[in-house]
Design a protein around this nucleic acid. Structure first.
Lengths: 345, 345
DNA sequence: CTGTTAGCGCATTCAA
DNA sequence: TTGAATGCGCTAACAG
């Protein structure tokens, strides 16, 4: 509870000017060794640590990244945030965190203003994009004084985006089921207005060889909202309209949990009667019965990549206006377990 | 990418002093209505927003709370962080986030220094306490210039603690199993060096009426490490050493998932042959087969309570030294599902 | 009601 | 190798 010690206190005790202390603290070369060690000792004794706020004011940068996060109860979100924190720490940046739990566009401005007025050097925006909303963040970004990296969104011109290749993941999942002898591979999608959900749907559709809005595709599609309950309901719907469905690509693992439940109630054995591949590779996936094959997002690369991009922009501000920046794609990985591999056949 | 507009820019255009602009921005009363509206318009046109860094420097406070978080992949951790963010936002505080993913005491000082040099007004410390480590944070806290609230730790004199009543939760869980006719209620604990795990163990022991380190207690105890795999292994061990075990209180839901798996392999039907109560009430709990009875931590109150405490301390700094602050206990709640209730008996 | 002065804590620039 | 002056953007305290 002591009063905070400033650079002047150290200077006074050391009998030098504040500038000399500053030089020592910042490891500048031009200080006599004797002076340096003497000051270092005093710094330690007094437990002096520089006021970063003051330093930021003069340097015009805070070494802080603003992060706009989304629902940490989603596995993808919290692993991404964890990766962001880790990478930022390594690169010497602190994180100013704001969470948004519902995708209400009216919150964009206050959140942005709050972070910007706190002088963050850059921003990472992790909110999923809903197709039926304006893509405001993309427009706002352009005339902001700091770089913004968008995560898991469609890249519009001028955006800096780090993105999971959802489409590829869905294709791999679907292909895997087909290769394991399943003939009628359905899909349980996420909310239809989520861009990521649509990408996964498109990947499935392409791999199945269905044309856009074909009748076949429709018969093998049911929509969920990411929750286990919706996954359960979706399987009932799917089996009802296409009783010969023998496999399903479920757009996230939470819904797959619901699918397991529905399969149990319908008397469908996994993987013999119904093959399942999920998406996310949540920790529980390996512990379902049978263990769930799933697509791992490699969130670590997503979060780390976003930090890397934003830091690069912070350090080379001119680049951003000069050249278009290609989106960094992160490739998901198929983790094969028992829910998608039958011995017979 | 424009240069940032300062209070002086606004003042110049408005033809007033910076001070008057400051008054308008901060809603001070003594400004003529005409001047106020005129300045407000200019503020809007220029998209001026005050530099909070500068304001912080002069006011000696940042309206920022430092949060030291732990593994967001744990359900409890991420719900607590979510609650902290929400409450802090409501009270006008931003969050500077640091995550620690392994409980290595050497990290305490750097993390603390980083946050303190960034002039946070207060700290929330959510790392679990391991009994075999020094309780350093508790000592450090005392002579810090800002208040620190500790979450889910044993309260030592001088600490400000918000804590889940783990012991009570374990008692309620155990009592519930006994009341449902189970006779031999075992426990699968968390890591033995975690204080919270021990509290849950003690709650179970008390409710079972066992004395400390009694032979009976030992025969009904197996240790896990919070992971599903360890839960699975622990059930095998428990059944092996006490084959008549007919129910088990599992110290978290992740391990309970492993217990389900083990029960399946052992041919034990839940809840008929084996009653189960978990702890955490993760979202998947209701979707296991059968749905898992569990203890809800009410993380929302834990996180919110911590923010409330720290903000109170920030606003009344003198109080902290004058009076001992009693820990705030959050009572967990039993959520009854099918895994612990048999129809027969 | 409004402006002036001063200074938060520090680092940059220049001079010594 | 060191120190003095200056100012980052803002607001508290005072004066008018």
């Amino acid at each position: 509870m002591e009063k905070k010690v400033t650079i002047k206190d150290v200077a006074k005790i050391a009998g030098v000017s504040a500038q000399t202390v500053s030089r020592v603290v910042n490891n500048h070369p031009d200080v006599a060794d004797e002076t340096r060690t003497r000051i270092q000792k005093i710094v330690k004794d007094l437990e002096y640590s520089p006021n970063i706020i003051a330093r930021s004011l003069i340097q015009g940068k805070t070494n802080t990244i603003g992060v706009v996060g989304f629902r940490l109860d989603y596995f993808g979100s919290n692993t991404i945030l964890t990766a962001i924190e880790r990478k930022a720490g390594k690169l010497g940046f602190s994180l100013l965190l704001t969470l948004i739990n519902d995708l209400d566009e009216s919150k964009i401005d206050p959140v942005l203003n709050q972070l910007l007025s706190r002088q963050v050097d850059g921003l990472i925006w992790t909110l999923p994009w809903l197709k039926d909303t304006q893509n405001r963040i993309s427009e706002i970004t352009k005339n902001l004084s700091v770089p913004v990296v968008l995560l898991n969104r469609k890249a519009f011109p001028g955006d800096i985006v780090v993105c999971l290749d959802n489409r590829h993941g869905a294709r791999v999942a679907t292909k895997h089921l087909l290769e394991n002898g399943y003939k009628h591979v359905g899909i349980i999608t996420g909310p239809t207005n989520w861009w990521e959900a649509e990408e996964r749907y498109e990947g499935w559709r392409e791999e199945m060889g269905f044309s856009i809005s074909s009748r076949q595709a429709e018969m093998l599609t049911a929509h969920g909202d990411w929750t286990p309950q919706s996954g359960e309901d979706a399987l009932y719907e799917l089996i009802k309209k296409s009783p010969d469905t023998d496999a399903v690509f479920v757009s996230n693992d939470q819904m797959a949990i619901g699918v397991y439940r529905a399969a149990g109630k319908l008397g469908l054995r996994i993987p013999d009667d119904l093959g399942i591949v999920g998406f996310d590779n949540i920790p529980e996936a390996g512990f379902l019965s049978p263990p769930l094959t799933s697509i791992d997002q490699h969130s670590r690369y997503l979060g780390g990549g976003a930090v890397q991009q934003v830091v690069e922009q912070i350090k080379n501000p001119q680049k951003r206006n000069d050249e278009e920046i290609a989106p960094s794609w992160v490739k998901p990985e198929l983790i094969i377990r028992e829910s998608s591999t039958r011995n017979n056949d």
